[in-house]
């Protein structure tokens, strides 16, 4: 039952509206989820109390996996993604003998949500892996030449395993943040190729960080009812949305990817709104990342 809100300050009013709306009978959320969400959108807010342009709280934990060369755990509200990077030695590709490889892989196990079944990776996981690979290549966050140890003979291969532990919508954003944070955390040992034996000698004592030149950050939006754009959708909002768009932008305001896999058509103004919001998001995430890296160094 909707109670008429009394006159109060805007924030108090919004909180009161949310409270009265969340007291909707339980069957309304399951039988008519669209109507339930529409009631909130009319008041310009969402069931969890966020505004239309507000991201969920992002928490970041770096270096939790000691067996990996670099790792990061990201929580975006309830969505939890963990990324582990392992460096291995291999011969460089024949068509680019002075470059190394970066192999990302996104895994959506049945653990994170009931919609995924055990077995080979489904379409969503494969499309997400392709998306991450494209972002790494488009943004040039890392020069592949840096991964080469000796031209034509030996180079590093970085296997990035991104696993979702809890699926509550918007995994693409969280995956990019996790990848970026773990890349900054990676420490690769020095490797020399012994000329006489031709074998690689790894010096585990001397380690150095990777040279990350760009910091791409993703911002995802869902389109509701063909017109309303909401930022950082949860799993329920994703299921009800009519379209989806992800914008990846780096700190120089260069667009790395505009990923819109079909769905409702968007006008140019709405696309520009998304880009603007992505720019502010980039600044927020870079600030968070710097704070965490500083606190790691302080240890």
């Amino acid at each position: 039952m909707l109670r008429r809100p009394q006159r109060a300050s805007k924030l108090h009013q919004r909180v009161m509206n949310t409270n009265s709306l969340t007291q909707a009978p339980w069957h309304q959320t399951t039988v008519e989820p669209l109507e339930y969400h529409r009631k909130f959108l009319k008041e310009n807010c969402r069931p969890d109390g966020r505004e239309l342009g507000e991201f969920r709280t992002t928490t970041l934990n770096i270096g939790s996996i000691t067996t990996a060369d670099g790792s990061a755990l990201v929580k975006l509200g309830n969505t939890t993604i963990i990324c582990g990077i392992k460096g291995e030695l291999a011969a460089p590709p024949a068509d680019a003998p002075d470059k190394g490889y970066i192999v990302p892989n996104v895994d959506l196990p049945p653990l994170c949500s009931s919609r995924f079944r055990p077995g080979p990776p489904g379409e969503q996981a494969q499309a997400a892996s392709q998306f991450i690979a494209d972002v790494i290549e488009n943004s040039e966050m890392l020069q592949r030449e840096d991964l080469c140890i000796e031209k034509g003979k030996l180079s590093w291969v970085l296997y990035c395993d991104i696993i979702c532990l809890d699926y509550d919508g918007n995994i693409l954003d969280a995956c990019i943040i996790a990848l970026l944070a773990s890349m900054k955390n990676v420490q690769l040992p020095e490797v020399h190729v012994n000329e006489q034996t031709g074998l690689a000698e790894v010096n585990m004592k001397k380690k150095r960080h990777l040279n990350i030149v760009k910091h791409p950050v993703a911002a995802s939006f869902a389109v509701f009812d063909n017109s309303i754009l909401i930022v950082d959708p949860t799993s329920d909002e994703e299921n009800l949305s009519t379209g989806f768009i992800t914008v990846v932008i780096d700190e120089e305001e260069k667009l790395c990817t505009v990923h819109k896999p079909g769905g409702t058509p968007l006008s140019n103004e709405k696309l520009q709104d998304c880009i603007n919001r992505a720019i502010t998001r980039n600044k927020e995430v870079c600030k968070l990342l710097n704070k965490v890296m500083k606190s790691m160094k302080a240890k």
Binding site: I245, K260, G262, L266, N268
Partner: peptide, 11 residues
């Protein structure tokens, strides 16, 4: 209007 967008490279 734009229904789908797929991009490669930075711009």
């Amino acid at each position: 209007q734009v229904m789908m967008s797929s991009t490669k490279g930075a711009f």
